[in-house]
Amino acid sequence: MEGGKNYILGVFDDEDVLLKGIKDVRQSGIKIQEVYSPFPVHGIDDALGYRRSRLSIAAFIFGMCGTSLALIMQIGMLGVDWPMIIGGKDHVALPDFIPVTFELTVLLAAFGMVGTFMVISNLKPWGKPRIYDLRITDDKHVMAVDIAANDATEDDIKKVLQSAGAVEVNNKDFE
């Protein structure tokens, strides 16, 4: 996630304090750029006001593509392109097509959704993330506030973060 250059970071060591802290900071009118955590914190998206992810809808659409693709492929190959009588069944024996249709539905839904997730979250092997604090993959939660995006002064932001329960408040500048 690209943003400004100069940040103030509030470091939290407890997820319940963090959740309450997010509410306090937002109430005092300070915009939080993002919160970084070592594990998923239950309820953090509500606290930050994030909308529910629409990835499940993407999965459904990809799944439907899989269903259609599978049916078109099987009916096209065995029903249209090269019809053969197999075991005395119809050329298009739909019950026999259920397993492959189901598997391709699951395959496309899963790969389509995960691919979408990778793209929108900018996850790629050569990705170089902005590391705000090395401890966010260990045991600390970091609330990053972009100084340029807020009207409040640096000192005011620091005070708000401290009173919100941050155990440390640091400056972090990116080139």
Binding site: V35, S53, L55, I120, S121, P129, I136
Partner: peptide, 28 residues
């Protein structure tokens, strides 16, 4: 690690992905 940064937004999507994958993998 694919450039993972632990952002709350990414975690939120990650949780959705895990839940939907579980839903797909169960009948699978």
């Amino acid at each position: 690690s694919f450039g993972w940064d632990g952002a709350a937004k990414t975690w939120s999507r990650y949780e959705t992905v895990a839940l939907v994958l579980a839903g797909l993998a169960t009948p699978l």
